[in-house]
Design a protein around this nucleic acid. Structure first.
Lengths: 348, 348
DNA sequence: GCCCTCTATGTAAACGATTACATATTTGTA
DNA sequence: TACAAATATGTAATCGTTTACATAGAGGGC
């Protein structure tokens, strides 16, 4: 591999001069500049970023610690992160971990010297203790139950979004509204459940335990939960699934049982994945701007990086939007349009 | 940040000894071992991997160059890559690029000194020229039209998979079979098209240009293409979409037009994304083991890394499987089961 | 002509680790 | 007891950069 020394030797110059030319730092004669650039490119010289970051103590890389995410959520959030990172000349070092603290700590340890900051996506509730990660590099906590103020953090407006959707169902006249929950240890899931309960109380309805079905964010769980609900002597008239995957599973179960949606039972989801509009019937959902979530997280992190982690901590939330389609019986003129992806929105 | 020197000073030892203790290299007395380990952990010392990789010239990191992928494909392939990488103690440095050669070259350049090898996923046909990437580090080309033997490469059995699916449709009695194509510049898409045409010819059917609708792998494109096909005076009786997203868009269009699937028109997709089985009707598709694709790519790359890129080049393909569900009218007892994800398969 | 200020370049010390080699101490053996 | 071998530790070079400081020549003002 050709190093800066090789270039210097070939150009009959010192390494310092070569470095100055290639980085545009310090004064150099126009002639030497041309010469060195020519030699460097002829030799196909590429600076060794590892060596560079050792002396500058900047890696221009951001670490991302993720749990085992599936589908759209994963790709969208990475897309958001990568695009803003690239815009600022940064790379992304991605690592999947289980969400528990020791795992995350080893992962962060392994990132020492490789990254300038880390985004930790840890939806696991117990990860609360992550707050006091003994970290000297900037950290942004994503979608986690971080209550303290030691770390920057960013979450989804889960509670409010769920509350709006359930309120919408109540306004349509529903009184027996079931929920298919996410894992009780998942932060987003518990917040959505909280929003569901708040909306019921707001509407003068007492939450009923049998209407709260367990789930784990998978289609299979949504399918199973719907079967359970159908078996009840006193069926709900609406089902709110804590995410779209489960809502889709539920739709599939209802269809097989010959239950009409929304006439017999209304169904709503959360996330508004692209496929939601292509379901039968098109699925009402709470839109989460996943890509923006990633973008914003990286922006916060970069802010921490440029301020050397010495900045007031922030806790932000990205807001959601109700998207009403046919599955809740809300009137909707929305058709999947051929190309443009305009989105119909009901704000509350 | 505490360095190895700080630890050495605190323990009253030389850096060499500290290094030896922490890496288990060279002989050390049990006592110093204990002492140093104790001091190191008390000071929360974490080795600087950048510095280490400078001298060892190993980064234990693999680069991944990806185009703008959406949905399941992206997350699954990363999952496969990350899990095998981690199993071998490697990290993943991910970068999105446009698929053209100059972009990829700059990206690879930026990776110099950061990674030990790179997986390049470049479905763009023109990327053929990537073959002679002037790279000294190992490269694995994924899903690209690499014909030469200069680089390891891994692809999906697109042609065979498509051919099997279309043959299945022919065996069901269909003669007018349409295809919704992917981008003509996409390698996977052109291979699937090739398989479609082969199957037709095998069945004694002459391919008909009007039955080959343009598409771009999005739901919206599938929707639009289906509308076109419905408008024909001589409608097809079956539609083969080059991926599931388009098949889902098509299903949605057919549903809205009151066309029954599979009675009036059969529909099939490619990829077998998890949602396929939850469609109405459940979608027949060609299963692609995306996760394995990622795993295998990393395995090939690691092989190149350990052999210092001095090894015979390979060209591998991962095989696909027909998954017949109701959308093609093939009888299927398959129901989405609550938990276990058994998959019903027709091998050919 | 002298001194000061630029400009262009070189020298060498970092950055934080690993490791070949040297040295000192202990142990084993004849 | 003495010497070789084994064990434990230290010294210093090295990886490929950047950059503070040093040096040398050129140009300008008096």
């Amino acid at each position: 591999m050709v190093t800066i020394k090789d270039v210097a030797r070939a150009a009959n110059m010192s390494v310092a001069t070569v470095s100055r030319v290639l980085n545009g730092s310090g004064p150099v004669s126009e002639e030497t500049g041309r010469l060195i650039r020519e030699v460097a490119s002829r030799m196909r010289y590429v600076p060794h970023s590892g060596a560079r970051s050792l002396i500058t103590s900047k890696t221009e890389t951001l670490g991302v610690l993720l749990p085992d995410l599936y589908g759209e959520f994963f790709s969208e959030i990475i897309r958001g992160m990568d695009s803003t990172a690239q815009r600022h000349g940064f790379h992304l070092l991605i690592s999947r971990t289980y969400a528990d603290k020791p795992e995350i700590e080893t992962a962060m340890r392994a990132m020492r010297g490789r990254v300038d900051g880390v985004v930790v996506l840890s939806p696991d509730l117990d990860a609360d203790s992550l707050l006091n990660l003994p970290s000297t590099i900037p950290v942004v906590l994503l979608c986690s139950a971080a209550k303290g103020s030691q770390t920057d953090s960013l979450t989804i407006q889960n509670c409010r979004g769920a509350r709006e959707m359930v309120t919408h169902l109540i306004n349509l006249g529903h009184r027996r509204i079931a929920i298919i929950k996410g894992s009780p240890r998942n932060y987003d899931a518990t917040e959505r459940l909280r929003g569901y309960r708040m909306a019921l109380r707001d509407g003068g309805i007492t939450p009923e335990e049998s209407l709260e079905q367990a789930g784990d964010f998978t289609e299979a769980a949504g399918y199973a939960a719907a079967i359970e609900l159908l078996a009840m002597r006193n069926r709900p008239t609406a089902i709110f699934a804590a995410n779209d995957a489960m809502a889709i599973g539920a739709l599939s179960a209802l269809r097989e049982s010959g239950v009409r949606v929304p006439e017999d039972i209304a169904v709503a989801g959360f996330d508004d994945i692209p496929l939601a509009r292509y379901m039968d019937p098109p699925l009402s959902s709470v839109h989460v701007p996943i890509c923006e979530l990633g973008e914003r997280a990286v922006e916060m992190l970069l802010h921490g990086v440029t301020h050397k982690n010495d900045h007031p901590r922030r806790r932000e939330r990205v807001s959601t939007e109700l998207v009403i389609r046919r599955s809740t019986g809300g009137e909707s003129a929305e058709r999947p349009p051929p190309k443009t992806l305009k989105r119909e929105t009901v704000s509350t």
